[in-house]
Design a protein around this nucleic acid. Structure first.
Lengths: 132, 132
DNA sequence: TAACTGTACTATGAATGATAGTACACTATA
DNA sequence: TATAGTGTACTATCATTCATAGTACAGTTA
């Protein structure tokens, strides 16, 4: 499920955040599905529960999961177009990355292709699910 | 020219890398244009020359600048489609970000628009320059 | 009531980042 | 040829961040 790169310069909790986010976005983890408990995951990955908790807290603050004391942590249902702050942030990051891609010689057409491919696979959240 | 956010969690040298990269990509800094010397920029920004040097070294390893001992550091001419490793890396990052954008409710059409806008502004490197 | 869950805190050590200082190699100019 | 600039690299030190270990509290469920 996870592969942590302890040799990476990237902190362990950040790798967790990214990996879990990916699993949520690609719907490997589905809405309202329970995540492993912080103690359980800590044991599995041989890292400290506080490190897991830090990752879960970050995911919660970004709106990807919710937690209930005594019950566990769960995947938040996708809420397209609700997280304005996050959308702005992702757009800003995308702008920079698109600029860099074009500068490196990746063409606009290639980028269009990427978007079409990913749109097909990921399905674009609830809106696309509802259209099916 | 620069605004460093010393309160940011992001290291100072990384902020420098990003800002200079942006200036290069948007052609505010043009090919073969000389960058401020590490001592001069250090003085301007009131940070340590070694910190500047670290940022310049990173930019050089990513192919954005080149340095000549005794002369200075300069913007590398863009070399579209030459930096395969970098292109792969940017594509990977883009894939993740596009997935996240779609998941958040940003539509494929909006993403197409962003690409067209940026393509117009940035000009897509030498290939586009040569087409004009 | 026990075993699970999340959450938060303190303390400690390792890793990273930034700084200060120094020194060497190169270039250009007067 | 000397000076003033340039990049580059190193050591040492300190601050910050990250991860860990440990502990404890509040909630849920069977």
């Amino acid at each position: 499920m996870f592969e942590l790169d302890v040799r990476s310069r990237k902190p362990i909790y950040e790798q967790l955040v990214e990996r879990l986010k990916e699993l949520i976005i690609t719907e490997v983890l589905k809405a309202d599905e329970q995540l492993p408990s912080v103690r359980m995951l800590a044991q599995q990955l041989t890292i400290n529960p506080n490190t897991i908790q830090k990752a879960y807290r970050e995911l919660e603050s970004q709106g990807y999961i919710y937690s209930i004391k005594g019950k566990g942590s769960f995947v938040s249902p996708a809420t397209p177009n609700q997280n304005s702050e996050k959308i702005i942030k992702v757009k800003t990051e995308l702008s920079k990355l698109i600029s860099e891609a074009l500068y490196l010689g990746i063409t606009a057409d290639e980028l269009f292709k990427m978007i079409k491919e990913i749109d097909t696979i990921v399905g674009g959240g609830i809106e696309n699910d509802q259209n099916q």
